[in-house]
């Protein structure tokens, strides 16, 4: 027992608060990469969703292929292909490679989220809009999509949190975000655990805040859902 307690002596938990703010630039990198990946994912995801829902095979087939390939292969492999694999064709810096790889990766999942939300909107909505003389595009933009978006918010929030955590894979192409930062400091001082805990706290704060923001958005979008109080 004595020995077991002694084994904890190699840890110095004071590092956690002493070095906490040293991680701020790394946290900024994590945030930047995640935010950019989410943004790319949202725009591309919506395009792919609309392609998949189009009645034309020329749009459906590439969209299905895209979603199939991206969801069927590991994100780290996709990142390596962009960063190491295609250097013969185009040489990407690590930051653009990470943003594109993560953005393209998230888009596949976000496309499925949007598609599911769009098809869940009652067909009568589309019919009512069209019966007023709206074009397909107007009906989508004004009537179907706003309702679909509302339904997509909870799963999107989930995907955003996944995207934030997945950004830690950027450490593999030497972007000094939270994970790489903690590994480097850990390796130079042998205090791995302390630094990993710092990184963990940052991730936790980021994903919890993200969850809270999404929850607030959900509440705000729900104003039209209040039923008659009896």
């Amino acid at each position: 027992m004595q020995e077991f307690i002694k084994s904890f002596e190699c840890y110095d938990l004071t590092i956690i608060y002493e070095k906490f703010w040293v991680f701020l630039p790394a946290a900024a990198d994590t945030l930047k990469i995640s935010a950019a990946a989410i943004l790319v994912g949202l725009v591309l995801g919506l395009i792919v969703a609309v392609m998949k829902l189009s009645p034309y095979k020329v749009f459906q087939i590439p969209a299905n292929l895209y979603i199939g390939v991206i969801r069927g292969t590991p994100i780290l492999l996709q990142l390596f292909i962009l960063y190491y694999g295609i250097t013969g064709i185009i040489k990407l810096d690590n930051y653009p490679a990470a943003v594109i790889a993560f953005g393209v990766h998230n888009a596949a999942y976000i496309a499925e989220i949007f598609r599911g939300a769009i098809v869940s909107v009652d067909i009568g909505q589309q019919e009512a809009a069209r019966s007023l003389g709206m074009t397909k595009a107007q009906a989508f933009r004004r009537i179907v999509f706003p309702q679909a978006f509302k339904r997509a918010v909870p799963p999107l929030g989930n995907q955003f949190i996944i995207a934030t955590k997945d950004s830690s894979l950027a450490s593999a192409i030497s972007i000094r975000e939270l994970l790489l930062k903690s590994q480097q400091l850990g390796a130079s001082t042998y205090h791995f655990l302390e630094y990993l805990i710092i990184a963990g706290i940052y991730y936790l704060v980021i994903s919890t805040s993200l969850g809270y923001i999404v929850h607030r958005l959900e509440r705000r979008l729900a104003v039209s859902d209040r039923e008659v109080q009896v």
Binding site: D122, G124, Q125, E127, A128, A129, R130, S131, L132, G133, M134, T135, I143, P146, Q147, K150, S224, D225
Partner: peptide, 22 residues
């Protein structure tokens, strides 16, 4: 068809009001 629909109003069994609008 869109032009014609502007002159032909339709009322549905399930109303199909736009729930996100007042």
């Amino acid at each position: 068809i869109n032009e014609m629909r502007q002159r032909v109003g339709m009322v549905f069994q399930h109303f199909n009001l736009f729930p996100h609008m007042t």
